[in-house]
Design a protein around this nucleic acid. Structure first.
Lengths: 346, 346
DNA sequence: ATCAGATAGGTGAACGTTCACACCGGGCGG
DNA sequence: CCGCCCGGTGTGAACGTTCACCTATCTGAT
């Protein structure tokens, strides 16, 4: 009974119902030109055999693509994870299936390796291009099948306008806003603990959060300290931020994301510096936990899920030109002031 | 050039190389019975046409399955997310592809809906069965294709032994250990803020963490307070835990996961109760952030990634009996004592 | 009566691959 | 020198769908 007996096909149903395979196909796909009596017979046969349509065959036979592959490097980051959720929801609603393939952050994947991850040539693909492997995958896909790929990443409004295959939020503006907020609070300057992308070491990877931050400092005529580079993990951030929290001159740190901010809070605590009394800390992304740390984290909210949804819609448009190009619509990143920021103590 | 011109097939390569389609297939699949000269001709043709094999067709033609679908309800939970990562890594290593389908936590999915998510009948499937939608999906798949599914969930050693399609960690034991630890510290009793599964309201959902906790209290002859049910989100937990932190009699709380623990820490702080002075808090899962909260969270480490890997291996075994049944091997859940736990203040 | 047009349904090819098997030539043991 | 085996290759069917096109039957207006 638990034996893997072969699954019923459309032909089995057809035979049992006494109709042609095509008629079964029509019933399954809800075609209107089927007599009610016939439809019932077919449905009955379907139920009896436990027939379920085979999606692979369906796609093969030239039906719609109905499948996206998501290439990402790190699913444990809040941004990509939320974007993936957005993609999945949007895809689900249209009955598309979602494949996921995780790029190894350590490995430099060959072009062939990246291509081999796609189930077929021309597979619609969304790439999380926020780090090195993602950037590389983006480049490869852009060469191979520019019309069937979309990349999500941190880009400025100009870049987004210039590249029709790009989706992202201009978080430089939000970084600027956060920096200005800290300056207005009375801080002499603001330091920056940067996520890897923002160090600008990747091909094509610009440092938007860092740029927005630096711009405001320059405009305000403040010293622009060297950004402190951190890895993506909390442990790396904890290590990287040590010199910053040890320096009493440092009174405000803008962190590249909330994980880095958490590490900074921890480091500050261990260094005996009170937050926000001695040190103001601002995060980025509004990760779910950030409202519940003690003190609660001041951060920048970003709606990654909407970005994911937008990427999916854009992809559909690019794969099938007949679908109207979506207007990218989601809330701007927005500063959320909570408890880790305040005026300097002096 | 960016026109989506049709992709090259095995036939195109065959024609260009002047061989049969079967020979191309052999080259692509690395069959040894191809003359070196022929192989080179074919490889050249492949390069020239930019041919990439079509996985859909490959599976259709009766080749190996080489594809898993993961059904999960909440990718933002650390456990499922880490397990998914483990599955993906293991699958990747064998060149399998991974599909993901997210069940709506709010919606009660019909059987048909759940089945419709699978790309084909008999699709190998892994279900994250830690919540209601997951439990339901598990049941449906168990009816439909018991030999091509595996469920991951919180189960006792006995259940795991009894159900050959189950993978999980016996976290009841770890919960017991944590409870005993708190008792040994001198607490009169330990309260429990429970994750949804542990409330036992789901069909088949047992309350292992809660059971382990209750058992130790009973064995020690301590009062067993009513577990406080919480939702999965931090916000829900924050609300649910209010009465607990408000009660000065409560000196120790075992939380169902680290998110709930974070909410409890926050609530305690706002209620003016110091941690661990007035209140000891123990979490569950060792979520990455938990080592960096202030104070750092005492919690139970669980290697979900290994569980994911184990689920994948078990699935392979079940789908293809010729593969040896893997011995589930991963580290036992283990208590990690950090800073949120200590002796009661009295 | 007849014929256009709809309605219901069928037929065969195509999608890109693998599998089972048949074929051909040459080296080797008898 | 015959037959056998084996390396190397081709042939045709199968996988489960959809698509394009064709054929009946029934309706109602001419």
């Amino acid at each position: 009974m638990a034996q893997p007996k072969k699954a019923a096909s459309i032909w089995d149903v057809a035979r049992l119902a006494g109709v042609s395979h095509q008629t079964v196909s029509r019933v399954v796909n809800g075609s209107p030109r089927v007599a009610a009596a016939t439809r019932d017979k077919v449905l009955e046969a379907i139920a009896e055999l436990g027939y379920r349509p085979n999606r692979l065959a369906r796609s093969l036979a030239g039906g719609a693509a109905e499948s996206v592959t998501v290439l990402t490097a790190d699913t444990s980051l809040y941004g990509p994870e939320a974007a993936l959720r957005g993609i999945e929801k949007a895809a689900r609603a249209l009955d598309w299936s979602v494949q996921i393939s995780v790029l190894d952050p350590a490995d430099t994947h060959s072009d062939a390796d990246i291509i081999a991850r796609l189930p077929r040539a021309g597979e619609p693909t969304i790439i999380m291009a926020h780090d090195e492997p993602g950037m590389r995958a983006k480049q490869v896909l852009l060469d191979q099948q520019p019309h069937a790929m979309v990349a999500i990443g941190p880009y400025t409004a100009e870049e987004l306008a210039a590249s029709p295959w790009l989706v992202g939020m201009d978080d430089g503006k939000a970084a600027a806003e956060a920096t200005r907020y800290l300056l207005d609070l009375g801080h002499a300057t603001v330091h920056h603990l940067a996520i890897p992308t923002s160090t600008g070491t990747f091909g094509g990877g610009k440092a938007h959060r860092a740029e927005g931050w630096a711009r405001v400092l320059r405009e305000a005529g403040r010293p622009v300290p060297e950004p402190v580079p951190s890895g993506w993990t909390i442990a790396e951030a904890f290590k990287a931020v040590q010199p910053l929290v040890a320096d009493p001159e440092v009174t405000a740190i803008l962190c590249g994301n909330d994980h880095l901010a958490l590490a900074t809070m921890r480091a500050a605590h261990l260094a005996g510096r009170s937050v926000p009394g001695d040190l103001s800390i601002v995060g980025f992304d509004n990760t779910p936990f950030s409202a519940y740390t003690t003190p609660a984290l001041t951060t920048v909210n970003q709606d990654f899920e909407s970005v994911g949804r937008g990427a999916f819609e854009l992809l559909r448009h690019r794969v099938d030109g007949s679908i109207p190009r979506p207007v990218p619509g989601w809330p701007e990143p927005e500063l959320i002031v909570r408890e880790t920021s305040g005026p300097p103590s002096s």
